[in-house]
Simulated scan of single mutants.
Amino acid sequence: MSDLAIIAGQGRLPGLLMQADPQAHVAGLQGFAPDGAESFRLEHLGSFLAGLRARGTKRIVFAGSLRRPSIDPTAIDAATAPLVPRLAMAMRQGDDALLRAVISVFEEAGLSVIGPTDLIPDLLPAQGVLTRAEPDSDAQGDADRATALLRATGPADLGQGVVVASGQVLALEALPGTDWMLESVAALRGDGPLARPVPVGGLLMKRPKPGQDRRIDLPVIGPDTVRRAAAAGLHGIAIEAGGVMILDRAETVAAADDAELFLSVVP
């Protein structure tokens, strides 16, 4: 039996980790746990941690997306009550603070938190252009602008993505996420009520927040990201080397080639 537990949310990444360690125990928050996984409530986190230790779990990996659950104060059990003040304070401070608090709670329970890329290093591509299309000088200028913006907004615990065209910021990732952001750009360029005159082309840049703990909530792209970027009229995607995972890389690169988008891994 594996000493690994996968705390799984939604999306493709948890399934890839299950393939990497088929014997791992899989669990998830109620409402987000994959089929067949152990489901637990945040109000019972302390008891859940005790159960992990009892089954011999030593390593934890978090994977997949989820929304912040609502908490029922009347359902908090005795083992979880001491954790509530810290988690409640972190929830008011933003996603990064909350994730750091969650990691510390698991580590204080004697569990080692690892990142998905510790199990599947190939999720992180090497620096370079992965597609037939390559970024031109205009795209490089947009990438520089996007990088500067994300480095400025990251400390404020904003998102990990931005869309820039001709040096203009069309969208900055926030709580709704990357997919919603790209769909918003598509709406800007459509013929509906949200349409506005904006520059053509542009790129999506994805980077982790400065100082982010890269064991959890590392940015991810995949084939659906490429398709949404194409639908938004972008010319390409740039991601940080060592900081953004690509799921189903061959399919993702093929989708970009089909759409004649560039996919660039940058410093």
Rank of each mutant, 00 (worst) to 15 (best):
T147D: 08
S112F: 12
F32L: 14
L49C: 09
L182A: 04
D3Q: 11
I71E: 01
A171T: 09
A171L: 05
T153Y: 05
E183D: 12
A78E: 14
D3R: 08
R145C: 04
D144W: 04
A259H: 14
G167K: 03
S166H: 15
G190V: 06
D217Y: 11
A230Y: 04
P208F: 09
D248W: 05
M89H: 10
A230V: 05
R214A: 14
A230G: 12
P267W: 15
G141D: 10
A231V: 12
A255Y: 02
D248N: 15
F32N: 06
A148V: 07
G202P: 01
G222F: 13
E108Y: 08
P155A: 15
R55L: 03
A156C: 12
G64W: 01
D3P: 04
G243S: 12
E240G: 10
W180T: 14
S112T: 15
G222R: 12
A81K: 10
S70T: 13
A156H: 15
R189K: 06
V102E: 06
A148R: 05
V198D: 01
V185M: 04
A148Y: 07
I103R: 14
A5Y: 02
T252I: 15
R189V: 01
L87H: 08
D96I: 14
D248I: 07
H25L: 12
K206V: 14
S184N: 08
G211I: 15
L261D: 00
L87W: 09
L218K: 02
V253I: 13
P176H: 13
V253P: 03
G236D: 01
G51L: 01
G64P: 11
D142Y: 02
K209S: 11
S264M: 06
D95H: 10
L263D: 00
L203W: 02
E43R: 06
P219I: 11
L234T: 01
A5N: 00
L13T: 06
I60L: 03
G154T: 11
I246G: 01
L4E: 02
L17Q: 02
P73I: 04
G177Q: 09
G110W: 15
G243R: 08
A143N: 10
G28P: 01
G154N: 07
A75C: 11
Q10L: 14
R145L: 06
A241S: 09
W180C: 11
